[in-house]
């Protein structure tokens, strides 16, 4: 078999106006037009979306899970970034 496999695309769907596009899965298609059509048929058969984005999978760059601990470490010791860090007197309202 010398036939080339169609490229892989990642599919993102906006479920309704006002919400962001969310990753739903992937599929193969020869080009972007076909990828959008296939995404409609595969991922929105029950009105799950009002808008579709497709991105060829090879264009996605990701953080490395093996380095996740170090990579996200800078945020781990900054509890003061959260409102719950601060004690507000009981008598203070609207804060």
């Amino acid at each position: 078999m010398n036939q080339q496999e169609w490229p892989l695309w990642e599919v993102f769907i906006r479920s309704k106006q006002g919400l962001d596009h969310k990753h739903v899965g992937s599929l193969h298609a020869a080009d972007a037009v076909m990828a959008v059509q296939n995404a409609r048929d595969v991922y929105t058969r029950r009105l799950e979306g009002v808008s579709i984005w497709v991105v060829e999978s090879k264009h996605i760059h990701a953080s490395n899970p093996d380095e996740a601990a170090e990579f996200f470490d800078p945020a781990a010791d900054k509890v003061y970034r959260h409102p719950t860090f601060y004690d507000v007197p009981d008598s203070i309202k609207h804060m």
Binding site: Q3, E5, S26, D41, V42
Partner: peptide, 22 residues
């Protein structure tokens, strides 16, 4: 048509593990 869709969801999941569709 749903069954075809289910097959596609699952093939995609297997591909994330490095299996090729072909």
């Amino acid at each position: 048509q749903d069954e075809a869709g289910h097959g596609l969801y699952l093939y995609s999941a297997a591909e994330t593990l490095g299996a090729s569709r072909d």
